[in-house]
């Protein structure tokens, strides 16, 4: 069973390597798998630009994402709970959100730079925008999906509004909140790389790294960097999933 999963990718890589060896694929456009591995080694040992090693880029990117994402979650979850709870509040704020939501996070980059300058603040702001709406919308739908009979059961146990909020709505919405958090981190991670194309002051970040690799004509390093970005995204999702299944044992 396990072996089957790797069969087709392995076959493709072998064909790719063969075609590169026969010079059917030009190396300056698409380097061979072996060249990409060597490029990855260079990213680790020499760095792009030299001295800026891979793990520094990873840490800077993670830091930016963590900052923007944490602010998004801290605002979106309570706000979503309130919006799901009070239909009046939902009616009042929904038009505003409906207006802002369709604006792609990347379209905010120019104004973000104007507001926050080039640096961590504008990058975090872009990630915040990417992560905020999925978390908000899923929190709202999580609250709305709670069966009203559970709220009534709590009322017959003499629950105050505060009890209902903390002991019924919040725990009941958690599965949906996790869905939002996973979509949010995915989008946040994607917008990060784009945000780093334009606004990086420190000279670190995975997006910045692959743009620099392009400037110095190193497609092997670009592709190795792309793979790192992909694997990082996957690892973050696996991590969140692990937290999710530990938190929600009741489903």
């Amino acid at each position: 069973m396990k072996k089957e999963r790797f069969l087709i990718p392995l076959l493709l890589i072998l064909i790719w390597q063969g075609l590169s060896f026969l010079q059917v694929i030009p190396s300056y456009k698409l380097p061979s798998p072996i060249e990409i591995i060597l490029g990855f080694k260079d990213l680790l040992m020499i760095g792009v630009p030299p001295g800026h090693l891979l793990h520094h880029h990873v840490l800077y990117s993670l830091y930016r994402v963590a900052l923007g994402y944490a602010i998004a979650a801290l605002l979106a979850i309570p706000l979503g709970l309130l919006m799901g709870w009070s239909s009046k509040f939902l009616r009042m704020v929904r038009p505003l959100f409906e207006l802002i939501r369709p604006i792609p996070p990347l379209a905010w980059i120019p104004i973000a730079i104007l507001w926050f300058g080039i640096g961590i603040k504008s990058a975090a702001f872009i990630i915040f925008l990417g992560a905020f709406f999925p978390i908000l919308l899923n929190t709202i739908s999580g609250v709305l999906s709670i069966h009203p009979i559970l709220i009534e059961a709590a009322r017959t146990l003499h629950a105050s509004e505060r009890d209902i909020f903390l002991k019924v709505l919040f725990p009941g919405a958690i599965p949906s909140i996790f869905v939002g958090m996973r979509i949010g981190i995915g989008i946040g991670w994607m917008t990060l790389v784009a945000a780093e194309f334009t606004g990086v002051k420190e000279g670190f970040g995975l997006g910045y790294m692959i743009m620099t690799a392009r400037d110095i004509q190193r497609p092997d390093e670009i592709l190795a960097g792309m793979l790192v970005i992909g694997v990082m995204g996957l690892l973050i999702d696996i991590g969140l999933r692990a937290i999710e299944s530990k938190t929600i044992k009741w489903q």
């Binding site: 009979i149 709590a154 725990p171």
Partner: peptide, 22 residues
């Protein structure tokens, strides 16, 4: 209630305890 109306995220103990907790 009809259909139990238990809090699915609470254990047996947690469900029975809810009222006293409140």
């Amino acid at each position: 209630f009809q259909e139990y109306a238990l809090f699915p995220w609470r254990t047996t103990l947690g469900n029975i305890e809810m009222g006293l907790e409140i």
